[in-house]
Each structure stands twice: as C-alpha cells, then as structure tokens.
Amino acid sequence: MSNMIHMSYEVPPGDFTRAGEASSNLKSSLKKMGVNPEIVRKVAIAMYEGEINMVIHATGGKIDVVVSPEEIEMVLKDQGPGIANIELAMQAGYSTAPDNIRNLGFGAGMGLPNMKKYSDEFKIESTVGVGTTVTMKVKME
C-alpha cells in the first residue's frame, strides 16, 4: 500500500558508541513526518531498549520498521544466543549483563519491561542457539 513507509536499520555488533543510532534515526524521521511527539517518544524508548539488547546480549541484528496511518510496527531480529526462559527475562530486575556492561549504566533488568510498557502490542520469540525476534506495535492515536 502506498501510504505505508518501510525503513530498515542494520545494528552493528558490539559497538556501544553507535548503539542507539537506529532509534535516533527513526525518531528524527517520525518527527519529520509530523507524528505526535508522545507517540514518537514511546517508539523511541521501546526501540532503543531493543536495539541496545541486540548489541549487549546478541551480535547486532536488523530492525525493520513499517509506518502506516494506524500504527508503527518495529521488528527486531538477531542471530544471538536466544533466551532460554522468556518469562524470567521479562521480569523487572532480571539481567545477565556482565560487569563491564553494568559499569556503563545498563543491567537494571528493565529493558524488556520498558519495551512492553511503551508498546501497545509486544511479542517476543526466541530459540536458543538461533536468535531472538521482538515485534512491537505502537498505535498512532
């Protein structure tokens, strides 16, 4: 459909100075499109948490975004180690982040709960040894 806009971002592995670039780029694109600032903020927060998880816990990955008049859909796909126990990973405070990552301010175990909180639809699929795919939708209204 012509009134849908697709955007794709590569998230490079292990690069903390660049982590967040995809979210920043999406944020400025949405602003330029005139999307309501509160919606933009929700998308930016949800996407950043997913993007940073791909860098910290996986080996980077790919993010596909579709903007339609009704909603913004983000699909974050990585080929990292996967998550053995999703229910546990979703708990506020659960984190396997190593010390060097915690020293940067990560590791509160709030990333996945934030993604759920700031998206209107949230789905996470993961297979150990294969990778993780997170799908989030934020409604326009």
């Binding site: 950043y48 301010g105 990560f106 509160a108 934030n114 909180k117």
Partner: peptide, 9 residues
C-alpha cells in the same frame, strides 16, 4: 537515576 533503563522507563 544512574541506571539507564530505569531512567528510560
């Protein structure tokens, strides 16, 4: 707050 994802949320 110093924990990034707490601040983020």
């Amino acid at each position: 707050c110093d924990l990034l994802s707490v601040a983020m949320g």
